[in-house]
């Protein structure tokens, strides 16, 4: 989980995802939280969307927004959905919190034609400087947790994720890296807080 900057158009990562998605498509949002992204996609892109979320209070918020949502753990499996059922499966800000990210992402690529992954970059320069100069595990505005209370189970950089995709034969069709409400093009693994990837796999 990271703190994402709000701006007048809503969360910038949501705006980036919105642009990646074709209108009227079928979307599954894994770890959909309060359903803000799904509601946005339905309103702006007329998608047919459904979410999976583990937090009970978030389920109420989703239902209040008029969303279809399932109260489940994405680690417990997606394979009850048939092959390529969805046009897009979204894993935004959730992959680093699952127990078995490899399984989840490969399952997402089975049930979805395309997968959108949003990950926090744990190797941002602020984090690196804290490790180097302070000799401590970084706590930054974007990664505000201490080691003992962080919901994040997985710590990875944008480069780590790209390497993972190469190893698994996953195609990165599009990559956008952001910092607050800004797109970062220069050395994103150093300067971007969040990486957003549009993936596919034959």
């Amino acid at each position: 989980m990271t703190e994402v900057e709000q701006h007048p158009g809503g969360r910038f990562d949501h705006q980036v995802i919105l642009e990646m998605i074709a209108p009227n498509s079928k979307v599954l949002d894994l770890g959909c939280g309060n359903g803000d992204l799904l509601a946005l996609l339905i309103a702006k892109k007329s998608v047919r969307g459904t979410g999976i979320e583990i937090n009970e209070q978030a389920i109420y918020k989703c239902i209040e927004k008029g969303l279809t949502v399932s109260h489940a753990d994405i680690d417990s499996g997606l394979m009850d959905y048939s092959n390529k059922r969805f046009d897009y499966v979204i894993l935004n800000e959730s992959l680093q919190e699952v127990l078995n990210p490899e399984k989840v992402i490969l399952e997402a690529l089975c049930v979805g034609k395309k997968v959108i992954v949003g990950i926090p970059n744990f190797c941002h320069i602020n984090a690196r400087l804290q490790i180097f100069f302070k000799g401590r595990v970084p706590v930054t505005d974007e990664l505000p947790y201490q080691w003992y209370n962080t919901p994040n189970l997985r710590f990875l950089s944008l480069k780590d994720f790209r390497n993972f995709c190469t190893d698994k034969g996953i195609t990165i069709e599009q990559e956008k890296n952001i910092n607050g409400a800004q797109e970062i093009k220069l050395i994103p693994n150093l300067f971007a807080h969040i990486g957003l990837f549009l993936l596919s796999r034959e």
């Binding site: 009970e56 389920i59 109420y60 279809t68 399932s70 109260h71 489940a72 048939s82 059922r85």
Partner: peptide, 20 residues
């Protein structure tokens, strides 16, 4: 939950919640 999985496998519009 087992039922929800079977309903989802039929591409049905199903929401579920386990109230604590």
């Amino acid at each position: 939950k087992e039922m929800v999985k079977a309903l989802r496998a039929n591409d049905l519009d199903v929401s579920d919640c386990e109230i604590n």
